[in-house]
Amino acid sequence: MSAANRPTVLVTGATRGIGRAVADLLAPDHDLIVGGRSAAEVSAVCGRLPSARPFVADLADEDAVGGAVEELGGLDRLDGLVHSAGVLGSGALTDLRRAGWRQTLETNVVAVADLTRLLLQPLVAAQGTVVVVNSGSGLRAHGPGGAYSASKFAVRAVADSMREELRPRGVRVSTVYPGRTATDMQRELRSFECGEYDEARYLRPETVASAVRFVLSAPQEACVEDLSIRPR
Protein backbone atom coordinates (compact mmCIF):
# COMPACT_ATOMS: atom_id res chain seq x y z
CA MET A 1 0.00 0.00 0.00
CA SER A 2 1.41 3.40 -0.93
CA ALA A 3 2.04 5.95 1.81
CA ALA A 4 -0.69 8.18 0.40
CA ASN A 5 -3.29 5.41 0.71
CA ARG A 6 -2.43 4.18 4.19
CA PRO A 7 -5.41 4.58 6.56
CA THR A 8 -4.85 6.53 9.77
CA VAL A 9 -6.08 4.92 12.99
CA LEU A 10 -5.89 6.12 16.59
CA VAL A 11 -5.77 3.34 19.19
CA THR A 12 -6.25 4.17 22.87
CA GLY A 13 -4.68 1.91 25.46
CA ALA A 14 -2.08 0.97 22.85
CA THR A 15 0.82 0.40 25.24
CA ARG A 16 -0.40 -2.94 26.58
CA GLY A 17 -2.89 -5.76 26.22
CA ILE A 18 -5.45 -5.72 23.42
CA GLY A 19 -4.63 -2.14 22.40
CA ARG A 20 -0.96 -2.93 21.84
CA ALA A 21 -1.89 -6.06 19.88
CA VAL A 22 -4.16 -3.95 17.67
CA ALA A 23 -1.36 -1.45 17.06
CA ASP A 24 1.10 -4.24 16.22
CA LEU A 25 -1.32 -5.84 13.78
CA LEU A 26 -2.19 -2.60 11.98
CA ALA A 27 1.32 -1.14 11.88
CA PRO A 28 2.54 -2.67 8.59
CA ASP A 29 -0.15 -0.96 6.49
CA HIS A 30 -1.58 1.83 8.64
CA ASP A 31 -0.44 5.19 9.97
CA LEU A 32 -0.96 4.87 13.71
CA ILE A 33 -1.65 7.28 16.52
CA VAL A 34 -0.61 5.48 19.70
CA GLY A 35 -2.63 6.38 22.78
CA GLY A 36 -1.54 5.88 26.38
CA ARG A 37 -1.12 7.58 29.75
CA SER A 38 2.64 7.18 30.06
CA ALA A 39 4.75 9.29 27.69
CA ALA A 40 7.67 6.86 28.08
CA GLU A 41 5.56 3.81 27.24
CA VAL A 42 3.90 5.53 24.29
CA SER A 43 7.30 6.62 22.99
CA ALA A 44 8.61 3.06 23.27
CA VAL A 45 5.71 1.70 21.20
CA CYS A 46 6.06 4.46 18.58
CA GLY A 47 9.79 3.77 18.38
CA ARG A 48 9.31 0.21 17.17
CA LEU A 49 6.37 0.74 14.82
CA PRO A 50 6.53 2.34 11.38
CA SER A 51 4.52 5.53 10.81
CA ALA A 52 3.43 5.89 14.45
CA ARG A 53 3.03 9.06 16.48
CA PRO A 54 2.02 9.65 20.10
CA PHE A 55 -1.23 10.57 21.80
CA VAL A 56 -0.43 10.93 25.50
CA ALA A 57 -3.28 11.62 27.91
CA ASP A 58 -5.09 10.30 30.95
CA LEU A 59 -8.49 9.74 29.37
CA ALA A 60 -10.21 10.59 32.64
CA ASP A 61 -8.68 14.09 32.48
CA GLU A 62 -10.77 16.32 30.19
CA ASP A 63 -8.07 18.99 29.80
CA ALA A 64 -5.37 16.43 29.04
CA VAL A 65 -7.48 14.80 26.35
CA GLY A 66 -8.30 18.14 24.76
CA GLY A 67 -4.63 19.10 24.79
CA ALA A 68 -3.58 15.82 23.20
CA VAL A 69 -6.13 16.30 20.41
CA GLU A 70 -4.78 19.80 19.79
CA GLU A 71 -1.23 18.42 19.59
CA LEU A 72 -2.29 16.22 16.68
CA GLY A 73 -2.27 19.45 14.69
CA GLY A 74 -5.65 19.22 13.03
CA LEU A 75 -6.20 15.89 11.32
CA ASP A 76 -7.61 16.08 7.81
CA ARG A 77 -9.02 12.57 8.10
CA LEU A 78 -9.17 9.71 10.59
CA ASP A 79 -10.08 6.32 9.15
CA GLY A 80 -10.40 4.53 12.45
CA LEU A 81 -10.72 5.23 16.17
CA VAL A 82 -10.26 2.17 18.38
CA HIS A 83 -11.31 2.66 21.99
CA SER A 84 -9.29 -0.02 23.79
CA ALA A 85 -8.29 1.78 26.99
CA GLY A 86 -10.13 0.84 30.15
CA VAL A 87 -9.85 0.31 33.89
CA LEU A 88 -11.08 -2.65 35.88
CA GLY A 89 -12.65 -0.69 38.72
CA SER A 90 -12.79 -3.82 40.87
CA GLY A 91 -14.36 -3.82 44.27
CA ALA A 92 -17.60 -4.83 45.89
CA LEU A 93 -20.37 -2.38 45.06
CA THR A 94 -21.13 -1.94 48.76
CA ASP A 95 -17.51 -0.88 49.37
CA LEU A 96 -16.94 1.33 46.33
CA ARG A 97 -16.97 5.06 47.00
CA ARG A 98 -17.92 7.83 44.58
CA ALA A 99 -14.30 8.46 43.59
CA GLY A 100 -14.00 4.86 42.43
CA TRP A 101 -17.23 5.09 40.46
CA ARG A 102 -16.08 8.33 38.84
CA GLN A 103 -12.74 6.90 37.77
CA THR A 104 -14.33 3.82 36.22
CA LEU A 105 -17.12 5.66 34.43
CA GLU A 106 -14.90 8.56 33.27
CA THR A 107 -12.40 6.20 31.64
CA ASN A 108 -14.66 3.43 30.37
CA VAL A 109 -17.68 5.50 29.29
CA VAL A 110 -17.33 9.28 29.25
CA ALA A 111 -13.91 9.27 27.56
CA VAL A 112 -15.23 7.10 24.72
CA ALA A 113 -18.04 9.53 23.95
CA ASP A 114 -15.92 12.65 24.44
CA LEU A 115 -12.91 11.57 22.37
CA THR A 116 -15.23 10.52 19.55
CA ARG A 117 -16.84 13.96 19.70
CA LEU A 118 -13.46 15.71 19.56
CA LEU A 119 -12.36 13.66 16.53
CA LEU A 120 -15.70 13.61 14.74
CA GLN A 121 -14.76 16.03 11.95
CA PRO A 122 -11.82 13.94 10.61
CA LEU A 123 -13.86 10.76 11.11
CA VAL A 124 -16.66 12.15 8.95
CA ALA A 125 -14.16 13.35 6.34
CA ALA A 126 -12.76 9.82 6.05
CA GLN A 127 -16.13 8.05 6.39
CA GLY A 128 -14.29 6.29 9.19
CA THR A 129 -15.02 3.55 11.70
CA VAL A 130 -15.25 3.79 15.49
CA VAL A 131 -14.54 0.52 17.30
CA VAL A 132 -15.41 0.17 20.97
CA VAL A 133 -13.61 -2.75 22.61
CA ASN A 134 -16.15 -3.77 25.23
CA SER A 135 -16.20 -7.02 27.24
CA GLY A 136 -18.33 -10.05 27.96
CA SER A 137 -19.23 -8.07 31.08
CA GLY A 138 -21.07 -5.68 28.78
CA LEU A 139 -23.41 -8.50 27.77
CA ARG A 140 -23.91 -10.20 31.12
CA ALA A 141 -23.28 -8.57 34.48
CA HIS A 142 -21.68 -10.60 37.23
CA GLY A 143 -19.98 -9.96 40.53
CA PRO A 144 -17.56 -9.14 41.92
CA GLY A 145 -16.60 -6.09 39.90
CA GLY A 146 -20.10 -4.73 39.42
CA ALA A 147 -18.83 -1.23 38.66
CA TYR A 148 -16.86 -2.60 35.71
CA SER A 149 -19.93 -4.40 34.38
CA ALA A 150 -22.02 -1.26 34.87
CA SER A 151 -19.52 0.77 32.87
CA LYS A 152 -19.47 -1.80 30.07
CA PHE A 153 -23.27 -1.89 29.87
CA ALA A 154 -23.21 1.91 29.73
CA VAL A 155 -20.62 2.10 26.96
CA ARG A 156 -22.60 -0.51 25.05
CA ALA A 157 -25.54 1.93 25.08
CA VAL A 158 -23.23 4.79 24.08
CA ALA A 159 -21.95 2.83 21.07
CA ASP A 160 -25.45 1.75 20.02
CA SER A 161 -26.70 5.34 20.21
CA MET A 162 -23.67 6.78 18.40
CA ARG A 163 -24.12 4.23 15.62
CA GLU A 164 -27.58 5.56 14.83
CA GLU A 165 -26.58 9.21 15.23
CA LEU A 166 -23.54 8.88 12.96
CA ARG A 167 -24.96 6.50 10.37
CA PRO A 168 -26.36 9.39 8.24
CA ARG A 169 -22.93 11.05 8.34
CA GLY A 170 -21.17 7.99 6.97
CA VAL A 171 -19.34 6.97 10.16
CA ARG A 172 -19.60 3.33 11.24
CA VAL A 173 -19.69 2.41 14.93
CA SER A 174 -18.89 -1.14 15.96
CA THR A 175 -18.57 -2.94 19.28
CA VAL A 176 -16.29 -5.93 19.87
CA TYR A 177 -17.06 -8.07 22.91
CA PRO A 178 -14.03 -10.20 23.85
CA GLY A 179 -14.29 -12.93 26.42
CA ARG A 180 -11.54 -13.46 28.96
CA THR A 181 -8.23 -12.46 27.40
CA ALA A 182 -4.66 -13.04 28.58
CA THR A 183 -3.77 -9.49 29.64
CA ASP A 184 -2.55 -7.69 32.76
CA MET A 185 -6.16 -6.74 33.48
CA GLN A 186 -7.17 -10.40 33.43
CA ARG A 187 -4.36 -11.23 35.83
CA GLU A 188 -5.59 -8.46 38.12
CA LEU A 189 -9.18 -9.72 37.86
CA ARG A 190 -8.24 -13.31 38.68
CA SER A 191 -6.30 -12.10 41.70
CA PHE A 192 -9.35 -10.15 42.85
CA GLU A 193 -11.48 -13.27 42.32
CA CYS A 194 -8.90 -15.36 44.24
CA GLY A 195 -8.68 -17.63 41.20
CA GLU A 196 -5.90 -19.18 39.13
CA TYR A 197 -4.56 -17.25 36.13
CA ASP A 198 -4.27 -19.81 33.32
CA GLU A 199 -3.43 -18.26 29.94
CA ALA A 200 -4.31 -21.50 28.14
CA ARG A 201 -7.97 -20.91 29.00
CA TYR A 202 -8.11 -17.38 27.60
CA LEU A 203 -8.03 -15.62 24.26
CA ARG A 204 -4.72 -14.15 23.15
CA PRO A 205 -4.70 -10.36 22.67
CA GLU A 206 -3.61 -10.99 19.07
CA THR A 207 -6.81 -12.94 18.46
CA VAL A 208 -8.97 -10.06 19.65
CA ALA A 209 -6.86 -7.69 17.53
CA SER A 210 -7.68 -9.75 14.46
CA ALA A 211 -11.38 -9.25 15.20
CA VAL A 212 -10.84 -5.49 15.47
CA ARG A 213 -8.99 -5.45 12.16
CA PHE A 214 -11.85 -7.41 10.55
CA VAL A 215 -14.31 -4.76 11.73
CA LEU A 216 -12.13 -1.91 10.48
CA SER A 217 -11.61 -3.51 7.08
CA ALA A 218 -15.23 -4.43 6.35
CA PRO A 219 -16.33 -3.28 2.87
CA GLN A 220 -17.56 0.29 2.92
CA GLU A 221 -21.21 -0.64 2.33
CA ALA A 222 -21.22 -2.86 5.45
CA CYS A 223 -21.08 -2.22 9.18
CA VAL A 224 -20.19 -4.96 11.65
CA GLU A 225 -22.37 -3.62 14.44
CA ASP A 226 -21.57 -6.18 17.17
CA LEU A 227 -18.97 -8.91 17.25
CA SER A 228 -18.61 -11.32 20.18
CA ILE A 229 -15.47 -13.43 20.39
CA ARG A 230 -15.09 -15.98 23.19
CA PRO A 231 -12.46 -18.50 24.31
CA ARG A 232 -13.06 -21.81 22.56
Rank of each mutant, 00 (worst) to 15 (best):
V109Y: 13
H30G: 05
V212L: 06
D184I: 07
T12F: 05
I33L: 12
H30K: 06
S217Q: 11
L32G: 11
S174W: 12
E199I: 12
S191D: 15
R16P: 08
R163E: 00
V131R: 06
P28A: 06
Y148I: 12
R53V: 01
T116V: 08
A99I: 14
V155G: 01
P28V: 10
A4S: 08
A92H: 10
T8G: 10
R16S: 15
E41Y: 02
V82K: 04
Y197W: 09
A157Q: 08
L93R: 03
V224W: 00
A23K: 03
G145W: 06
S191E: 15
V22C: 12
D76A: 14
T104A: 12
R97G: 15
R48S: 07
A154Y: 03
G80F: 03
V130C: 01
H142G: 14
V112S: 10
F153R: 10
G86S: 10
L59D: 03
A4E: 13
R230H: 11
R102T: 14
I18W: 02
R169A: 15
K152P: 02
R48V: 12
V155W: 04
R201T: 13
T181L: 00
T175P: 02
V212K: 04
H30D: 12
V11P: 11
G67N: 14
A111K: 05
G17K: 04
V82T: 01
V124Y: 10
A52E: 08
G67H: 14
A21V: 00
R20F: 07
E221T: 14
R204F: 09
R20K: 12
V112A: 03
A218V: 13
S51K: 04
Q127G: 15
S149D: 14
R48K: 10
L32F: 00
L49D: 08
A4T: 14
F153Q: 09
G66C: 11
M185I: 05
L203F: 00
M162Q: 10
T8R: 13
C223A: 12
T175F: 05
L75I: 06
S51A: 14
V212F: 02
H142S: 15
A44E: 10
I33F: 05
T104D: 05
V87M: 12
M185S: 06
A218F: 09
R97N: 09
E70Y: 07
V112D: 02
L120C: 01
R167P: 08
A3V: 11
R213K: 12
G73H: 01
R97L: 11
T207G: 11
Q103F: 06
A111M: 10
L120D: 00
L49A: 08
D160N: 02
F214T: 13
S210Q: 01
Q220T: 15
A52W: 02
A154V: 11
A85N: 07
Y177D: 08
L75P: 05
G143H: 08
V215Q: 07
G89D: 11
E164R: 13
L115S: 01
V130I: 14
R102P: 03
A57S: 06
E196N: 06
V124S: 07
P205L: 04
R201H: 04
R48Q: 13
V173M: 01
A14D: 02
E71P: 03
A68S: 13
A157N: 13
T129C: 15
E193H: 00
A39T: 11
W101R: 07
